[in-house]
Nucleic acid binder design. Structure first.
Length: 109
DNA sequence: ATCGTGACTGGGA
DNA sequence: ATCCCAGCCACGA
């Protein structure tokens, strides 16, 4: 439930969605932004996730539209993000996530 | 209050 | 195919 600070701030919404990403799946910034109604504020989504680093939020499951681990440099180590995804059974196409297989879209719970 | 920045996206050259 | 440019929203100073 979103009785917490969720749905109050854009950040809260992002956190809630990211937490709902199933294991072995990934989503894109644009998908989250669009789900929140912002649509074009995909940049703000990533920026919000920047604050989530060090929290329980699986930010490593969020990639850009091309499936690239754009935020890998924001993690503790650049290789951690890919390692985490690999550990979840996500397939990689070179250094990009196979969105066709693992793309997950947020939905109203 | 204004200005600048950003883990993005889409379209054009 | 790749590279560059402009637009978009939210937050910090």
């Amino acid at each position: 439930m979103m009785t917490d600070n969720s749905s109050k701030d854009f950040f809260g919404n992002v956190f809630g969605v990211v937490k709902k990403i199933p294991k072995g799946k990934v989503t894109t910034y644009g998908a989250i932004a669009k789900f929140l109604g912002a649509g074009a504020s995909a940049r703000t989504v990533g920026w919000a996730l920047n604050k989530t680093v060090g929290t329980d939020l699986p930010a490593h499951r969020v990639v850009n539209r091309n499936g690239e681990l754009t935020g890998k440099l924001h993690f503790s180590t650049p290789n951690m993000m890919k390692e985490l995804l690999l550990a979840e059974g996500i397939n990689f196409n070179n250094d990009k996530v196979d969105l066709e297989k693992h793309l997950w879209l947020p939905e109203i719970d």
